[in-house]
Amino acid sequence: MKKRKLILSTGNSHKVEEIKDILKDLPIEVLTKKDVGLGDLDVVEDGKTLEENSIKKAKVLAEKLDYMVLADDSGLFVDRLNGEPGVYSSRYAGEEGNDKKNNQKLLEELKDIPLKDRTANFQAVIALVTEQKEVIVVKGQCKGTIGFKEEGNNDFGYDPLFIPEGYDKTFAELGEEIKNKISHRAKALDEMKKAIKDIIGVSLI
């Protein structure tokens, strides 16, 4: 049976690998927008919420394809900072995708704040546009705290600072195997897997 295709509306290699790993047991071919010749397609993320951004990214790409399209938007919401950086997480320090500067700014904003007051949660919203252009949206959340310095070898986003609830190590220290089971994106993708299963008419073991 020919595999159905699912196109990811992201150019972020870390996200691509994470999503592919979590969806690997589905009988679908997961491709990036670059794989289908649309690597230069950039969508302005001007939504006020994660949901608005994820839906927009999925729809813009889906208009050009006949395949299923998946897009996500995620953010770190720090309680002490009234939810910042939130929807602006990837450009918190003013430069899109500069993880090092974003982490440095976050640490500066939380300077001298004790650990008990450094609570935060990661949120992910994933939008899927089906081949029939139906839009499906799912969400995931992971609670935790912000550490006092960067720890770990995986320097993706805020992972070197975020300590998930129930652990004493950052996402960057815990590694992909654990992160891909407990993260906000993993939880959202688990819900999306159920939706994709229904769409393609197969059961998951």
Rank of each mutant, 00 (worst) to 15 (best):
G86M: 13
F148A: 03
G144R: 10
T130H: 07
G140H: 13
E52M: 11
L106P: 01
F148L: 08
K101T: 03
Q123A: 12
E108Y: 09
N53A: 14
A120Y: 02
G83E: 06
L65F: 07
I113Q: 01
Q132L: 10
Y67K: 03
Y92H: 13
V78D: 05
Y92A: 12
L70Y: 02
V138L: 07
K133W: 01
K105A: 03
E108I: 05
F122I: 02
E63K: 15
E63H: 13
K64W: 05
K56L: 14
S54A: 15
D112K: 14
E131L: 06
P114A: 02
A58S: 00
V137K: 02
G144V: 11
E134Q: 15
L107S: 00
E95R: 14
A71Q: 02
S90I: 04
K139C: 11
D66S: 11
L65N: 06
L76P: 01
G83Q: 02
G47L: 08
S89L: 04
K59G: 03
D73E: 07
R80C: 08
V135F: 05
V135N: 00
A58F: 05
G86A: 14
L70F: 01
V138F: 08
V78P: 09
V129W: 04
Y88M: 13
I55K: 12
G86E: 14
L65V: 12
P85Q: 10
D112M: 12
T145F: 09
A127H: 06
A58H: 04
L61T: 05
Q141R: 15
G47W: 06
N98M: 05
A93F: 09
N82C: 07
E95Y: 11
P114M: 01
P85C: 09
Y67W: 04
V78F: 10
Y67D: 12
R118H: 07
V60H: 03
R118W: 07
K116A: 03
V138M: 07
L110I: 07
D99F: 10
G147V: 04
A120L: 05
I113T: 03
G75M: 13
K149P: 08
A124G: 12
K48I: 10
N102L: 08
Q104K: 15
D79L: 14
K101G: 02
S90K: 10
S54I: 11
K133T: 05
T119R: 14
S89Q: 01
G94Q: 13
P85W: 10
F77K: 00
A127G: 12
K100M: 06
I136R: 04
Y88L: 13
K48G: 15
N98C: 03
E52P: 11
S90C: 00
A71E: 04
K111F: 10
G83L: 02
K105S: 08
R80L: 14
G75N: 11
N103L: 00
C142L: 14
N103A: 10
